[in-house]
Deep mutational scan, measured.
Amino acid sequence: EDAPSSDDLEQFAKQFKQRRIKLGFTQADVGLALGTLYGNVFSQTTICRFEALQLSFKNMCKLKPLLNKWLEETDSSS
């Protein structure tokens, strides 16, 4: 699987934040939901840093598919 470019990540982080707010979730909600869904709880700080593009590139790449999946799950259930 190709690693996303930093442009991709930036684009995704923006879209993710907009969708999250529109769906009415806090950063902490998302962190907990990831724990429920995938067994990895993320702190509010981590989600905040992801949205602000302040995580390392490697961590951004790791989180992106999880957050993407969460969006898909959340979209389909709302």
Rank of each mutant, 00 (worst) to 15 (best):
V41G: 12
V30P: 01
A3H: 15
T26H: 09
D2L: 14
L53Q: 12
A52Q: 12
S78D: 15
L55G: 04
S56V: 00
R19F: 04
G24P: 02
L37S: 07
F12S: 03
T36H: 06
E73Y: 08
D7I: 04
L23C: 03
R20H: 04
D29E: 14
S78A: 11
F50Y: 10
N59Y: 01
R20T: 01
G35I: 00
Q15C: 06
K69Q: 11
K17C: 01
V30H: 06
N59K: 13
G39C: 04
F16N: 02
S76K: 14
K17L: 02
E51Y: 00
F50S: 01
G31C: 12
F42K: 02
L63V: 06
I47T: 00
L63C: 02
C48V: 09
S78I: 04
P4C: 14
F25Y: 14
A52E: 13
S43A: 05
P4V: 14
L67V: 03
P4L: 11
A13P: 04
K22V: 05
D7L: 08
K69A: 09
E72S: 08
T26W: 00
K69L: 06
Y38C: 11
Q15T: 10
F57N: 11
L66G: 01
F16R: 03
K64H: 09
Q15E: 10
A28C: 07
L67A: 03
G31L: 04
K22C: 06
W70H: 05
A13Q: 02
K22G: 06
F25K: 10
A28F: 00
N68S: 12
I21T: 07
V30K: 05
S78V: 12
E51K: 05
F42L: 11
S78K: 14
T74S: 09
I47E: 00
Q44H: 11
S56I: 02
W70V: 03
K69Y: 09
P65L: 07
D8T: 04
A52I: 03
A3S: 15
K22M: 09
Y38D: 11
Q18F: 06
N59I: 08
P4S: 12
Q44L: 04
L9T: 07
E10Y: 07
T74G: 05
K58P: 14
M60P: 00
L67M: 10
Q15V: 10
A52S: 13
L32C: 14
V30I: 11
E51I: 01
L67F: 02
W70K: 01
P4F: 05
K22Y: 13
A13R: 06
T26L: 02
C61Q: 12
E51D: 05
A33E: 13
F42S: 05
Q15P: 01
T46W: 03
M60Y: 14
K17P: 02
S76A: 10
D7H: 05
L32V: 08
L55K: 03
Q54Y: 01
S77I: 10
F16H: 03
D75H: 15
F42T: 10
T46R: 04
R19K: 15
Q44A: 14
Y38I: 14
Y38L: 05
G35P: 00
L32Y: 09
T45K: 13
G31V: 07
N40R: 13
K64Y: 03
S77H: 13
S76I: 05
E51N: 04
E1M: 15
Q15N: 15
S77N: 09
V41E: 13
Q54A: 10
G39N: 08
S6I: 15
G35W: 04
Q18D: 07
A3F: 15
R20E: 01
N40Q: 14
A52M: 06
E51P: 01
G31H: 07
A28N: 07
